[in-house]
């Protein structure tokens, strides 16, 4: 009897240990990683059609370059070239061993656009000296008035939650005596959609449908859940409803673009600048790979009231105007100056 108890313990232990097996979906080989990533995008990415990307053709193009003998660098090049075709900054991959990262569509026009905007130039050359700065996730949320004009100015560097939100109703109150307002959304790196909605509501005059969002709910290209409508509507203690010019550029990304979709619905707001980055859909959880890389992809689709989608295009301004990088270096912000002229 006693021996049988010990035997039972031992047998149970061995049985339990033997059962400890789980099946991985991806192995640490270039072929397996490539197939896993391609399939993941195929079944989850939300904007192939809007971006005119034939993902099956992408497989045909890139799969021949992958076998289990290629190096890490070669695999990295294949995956980043494949992702870059989507021109979507929410598509990104990182090597956690080296910290090397890549975001789709970032390498060319995005980096160029970043140099078309200089916040220090605006502070020193365009704003009255009493401008204020609040913290927004380590970046400067700046507000004040344009030097020599009764025109207000606000720059949103991002839409992360921080001090600026706590003070925002006071900012609107302070600027309420101005005749017009520049809302500068250039180089806005995005953040939390709820924050973009929070801010836009302070500029709302009427309630309007801004956009619809759908999320993938199956592997097929048209498997999306029901449309969730989002409305621009007045929020906060008071709203700024005098003429507004919103400025944007190709480095206005994500929640920064969502902010513009809200603003676009209002009669008293004009949008000036370059088309935005076109990375609207929220990226999903990071996907981890066995070679210590992780990547992300958006799984949603944004559409506006007429059924069209800003994916692949970005937010198109009412007035198209870009700064010249050399002019910015010389101390001139033509887009801002144009906005001020519109408000005069």
């Amino acid at each position: 009897m006693k021996k049988s108890i010990i035997l039972t313990f031992t047998a149970s232990l061995l049985l339990m240990m033997a059962c400890l097996k789980n099946k991985e979906l991806v192995e640490d080989t270039p072929t397996s990683i490539f197939e896993y990533v391609w399939n993941d995008f195929d079944q989850h990415y939300g904007g192939f059609e809007q971006r005119n990307v034939d993902w099956d053709a992408v497989y045909t193009q890139f799969a021949p370059r992958v076998n289990d003998n290629i190096s890490d660098i070669e695999l990295w090049n294949v995956l980043t070239e494949m992702m870059d075709l989507l021109d979507d900054q929410h598509v990104a991959i990182t090597d956690t061993k080296t910290g090397k990262g890549f975001a789709s569509g970032k390498l060319n026009d995005e980096l160029l656009a970043e140099r078309e905007f200089d916040l220090e130039l605006i502070k020193t050359s365009y704003l009255a000296e009493d401008y204020q700065t609040l913290d927004s996730d380590g970046e400067d949320f700046v507000y004040g008035t344009i030097e020599g004009e009764n025109i207000g100015y606000i720059h949103f560097p991002n839409f992360e939650e921080d001090v600026w939100q706590l003070e925002f109703d006071n900012v609107i109150a302070e600027l309420s005596t101005t005749d017009g307002l520049i809302v500068d959304d250039r180089n806005n790196g995005g953040g939390i959609p709820l924050s973009a909605r929070f801010a836009s509501g302070r500029f709302a005059q009427t309630k309007e449908l801004a956009f619809n969002v759908q999320s993938k709910n199956g592997p097929g290209p048209n498997d999306f859940d029901e449309k969730s409508p989002y409305y621009m509507e007045p929020q906060g203690a008071q709203q700024y409803t005098k003429p507004i010019v919103a400025l944007c550029n190709h480095s206005t990304v994500s929640a920064g673009e969502e902010f513009l979709l809200y603003l676009k619905t209002q009669e008293h707001i004009q949008i000036v600048g370059d088309s935005t980055s076109n990375a609207l859909a929220t990226p999903t959880f990071k996907r981890m790979l066995p070679n210590a890389w992780h990547y992300q992809l958006p799984t949603q689709l944004y559409t506006v009231a007429d059924g069209s989608s800003p994916e692949g295009i970005g937010i198109v301004p009412d007035v198209y105007l870009r700064n010249d990088t050399l002019n910015v270096q010389a101390g001139l912000d033509e887009v801002l100056e144009f906005g001020v002229e519109l408000l005069k």
């Binding site: 989850h44 959609p193 709820l194 999320s215 993938k216 498997d223 929220t282 949603q300």
Partner: peptide
Amino acid sequence: AYAGIDNFLVENSD
């Protein structure tokens, strides 16, 4: 949900 993050998560992130 299927996509991991969907609208429900974004809206109720707090």
